[in-house]
Design a protein around this nucleic acid. Sequence first.
RNA 1: GGCGACGUAGCCAAGUGGUAAGGCAGAGGUCUGCAAAACCUUUAUGCGGCGGUUCGAAUCCGCCCGUCGCCUCCA
Length: 474
Amino acid sequence: MALKVYSTLSGQKEEFKPFSEEQVTMYVCGPTVYDSSHIGHAMSAVVFDVIRRYLEFQGYKVRHAMNFTDVDDKIINRANKEEVDWHTLTEKYINEFLEGIDALNVQRASVYPRATEEIGNIIAAVAELVEKGAAYPVEGDVYYRISAAQEYGALKHQSLEDLRAGERVEVDSRKENALDFALWKAAKPGEPSWESPWGLGRPGWHIECSAMALRHLGARLDIHGGGADLIFPHHSNEIAQSESLTGARPFVKYWLHNGLLQFGSDKMSKSLKNFVTIQEILKMGDPDNLRMFVLNSVYRNPLNYSPENFEAAGRGLQRLKAVFDPTQQWGDPTATQGNPEANQTLQQEIESVRPDFIEAMDDDFNSPQAMACLFDLVKEIHKGRDAGASPALLHLARETLAELGGVLGLRLKEVNHATGPTDCGPFINLLISTRRELRAVKQFALADKIRQNLKELGVTLEDRADGTSWKFEK
RNA sequence: GGCGACGUAGCCAAGUGGUAAGGCAGAGGUCUGCAAAACCUUUAUGCGGCGGUUCGAAUCCGCCCGUCGCCUCCA
């Protein structure tokens, strides 16, 4: 049993063996902060959060860096359009993004470097590439010389000839090769810029990641992640420039790419304006709903967002969380008395669920398979309760569920109050006790009316043998 | 046009050679005053189509159809 991960570079699942057994380094490309981040960005953050959590569960220490691209054309344009300072704009969207992923229970990265805070390193990197002959300056711009790269198309599994074949972009005639890309861009009047050996300018998009990864994680990374749309050109360029810079190959041991979130017939994208923001999805209810939605399919495949699919995932989440409904009685967790058969069945499930879960996750983080393990456990917990399994065993089973769910970042024990106010409990309890008295004297019409009216207010009552529970429900 | 993926039930979605996980929705039942929840039973002789390889294919090969991504800023 060993963890296998699918690397885009090799195109197959490989046994996971980090450079160091002590610490895994993981660099994940973050957003360009010119607008609110959408749930596609959140999906990527959740995917790599699950990967990180699983590595930590397996005993690795993970050093995790996620960058913010905080200077580029779109940021400049947006700032001009809104007549705000570009720095104010990026600060706003960085904070919004961090608030969003906090709410989604994404663990904070070890470090969040920003392009504009790494200018010195970036200039040094570009200068070194020029010195080594892997880059050339042209009128204040600096381009990477693609001919200096080894196996340039390897990540995309495409030859240089094929890459050139479909070239539809207008080629800058000053470039030696159409595929050469900008490391440094000369500033136009009014743009944010920094002094450099080539005059005032700013970094190109790709070099920032190489410089930041090198500084914060070292010359070689275990894992480099991002959305599948970054494979080319961004990550291909990163490989080229990083390897030219450090001479260390491969730059990255495992390239992990998440499939893109589809919305309708296209990928969700800021430029296509067909997106749902993280903040919008958080308003829809339980923040773990999005995580559940993401976990429901393998991370490498595209995921199609629709309100219906999203809600279906939410109902599955409710099923898991119902096991931790605080209004239900599970008995004294130290009581070991119970029906022997029920105990044996539940005991077996508790013993088998963990290895099954690990086997699923070891197979390139197969979260749907892992979720199936959790649902099986839920089923056995309910069965065990109905069949009279001991409270101690039920407690152990529930703790196992919470723990394994936690490995995936699900907060199963947390009661979600997002859909209702938190201070109306005493009033609802008063209505419940009144209703109990009505039911005792068989005034069912009135009792049902109370239940129905509460339901319309978003409060669901459930009558059980041991009393009535309530919860917020949309 | 080139390259890379994908197409599994009403919906979402695992499964890469040995006879179709799981979730949502639906149906019947148990429980309940009723409802909900939970539990039980049930819902693909078939995995886009047509051929081929094999004792055996959703899984391998070929062709076709359809969808998506990348080739341009993108998680």
